[in-house]
Design a protein around this nucleic acid. Structure first.
Lengths: 148, 148
DNA sequence: GTCGATGCAAAAAATTTGCAAGTAA
DNA sequence: TTACTTGCAAATTTTTTGCATCGAC
C-alpha cells in the first residue's frame, strides 16, 4: 500500500500545495541517478506534459531546495545541477569531481564508515553553532584518469 | 626571506604567465577569509588597479580553479563564490550552510576521526577510480539559529 | 620577438520577475 | 472561495566571446 510519498509532509508543514507539476518533477528526480540541470528536467517533463513551463521548473526546484528535498550543485559547467537528498532507490552518495573536464563520479564507498563520524561531527556542530543540520555532502576534487 | 609564492610553481608547470592582474587577484584571495564573488573581487582590485577589467577576473578565476588553486562554490545566492584551497593564513575549513537565508559558517573544528576517515577514503578512492585527488570539501546543510 | 594575456564592447546563457488566469485545499 | 501556482513574455544578471593591443618570458 503506497501511502503518500515521503516528501508529502514537508509540503504540508510548510503550507505548500501538491500540484501536478511538482509531482511530475519529483517523479523525474526520484527515477534518475543523474545530476540534472533545470533545462534537462524541463525537457523531460515536457515530453509528457508540454504545458509545464521552464519557469515552473525553476520555481519548483527553488522550493525543493528550500525544503531540503533536493541538493543544488555547481559542478563547474555553468549550470546548476539538482538531485534528491534522499529516496528509496537512491543511495546516499558523495562526489568525485575532475576539475579539468568536469566529470563527476558518484561514490558510495565507505558511506557507512563515514556515517558514524559524520553523526558525531554533526552533533558537535549543531550544538556549537545552533544549527539544525539535515544533510551533508562531501566533494573530492582532483584529476580523473584521462586528465592527469 | 619570502621566496616565490607557493602557487608560482603551478603556473610555471602549466606554462602560464605570472602577470600583474593574476598576482593582484591571488593577493586579494589570500588576504581575505570571505567567500568572494567575481564582482566583489573586481571591485576590490579596481580600487587600486582600475585598469583591470571584470573579464580578466573571470578568466583568472577560471584558470585558478583549473589549476586547483581556488575552490568555486555555489551557496545559492545566484553568483559563484571563490576561495583559496589553501594558504599559510587560511586554515583548511568546511562549511555549514543555511538553506533558508544562505548564511555560511566556516568551521575548522575537525575531530581526529574526521581526519582519519578522509585520509582513508581519499586513498581508496584514488586507487579505485584512478583519480589524482588534491582536495576535498564538506558541506553541512540545515537551518541556522535565526531561520529555525 | 612570440605567443599568451588583457580590455573593451557585444553576445550568450541562465535565472528571475510581472501579471493575468488557473486550481488545490 | 481564497490564496497559492502557473505560463508566457520580458527583464535582469551573470558569465563568455571576438578582436586588436599589450606584455611576460
Amino acid at each position: 500500500m503506497p501511502g503518500p510519498p515521503w516528501w508529502y509532509g514537508k509540503f504540508q508543514n510548510a503550507g505548500h500545495r501538491v500540484t501536478l507539476p511538482r509531482q511530475i518533477i519529483l517523479g523525474i528526480l526520484s527515477r534518475t541517478s543523474k545530476h540534472l540541470s533545470a533545462e534537462e528536467i524541463y525537457l523531460s517533463v515536457h515530453r509528457t506534459y508540454p504545458a509545464v513551463g521552464l519557469t515552473t521548473i525553476y520555481r519548483t526546484l527553488q522550493l525543493l531546495v528550500h525544503l531540503g528535498i533536493v541538493f543544488k550543485f555547481d559542478f563547474g559547467d555553468g549550470r546548476s545541477r539538482y538531485e534528491l537528498t534522499a529516496s528509496q532507490k537512491q543511495k546516499h552518495h558523495h562526489h568525485l569531481i575532475c576539475r579539468r573536464c568536469g566529470r563527476v563520479i558518484d561514490y558510495t564507498d565507505f558511506i557507512e564508515e563515514e556515517r558514524e563520524v559524520f553523526n558525531k561531527v554533526e552533533k558537535i556542530l549543531s550544538q556549537k553553532y545552533n544549527f539544525k543540520i539535515n544533510n551533508h555532502q562531501v566533494h573530492f576534487y582532483g584529476l580523473c584518469d584521462k586528465c592527469q
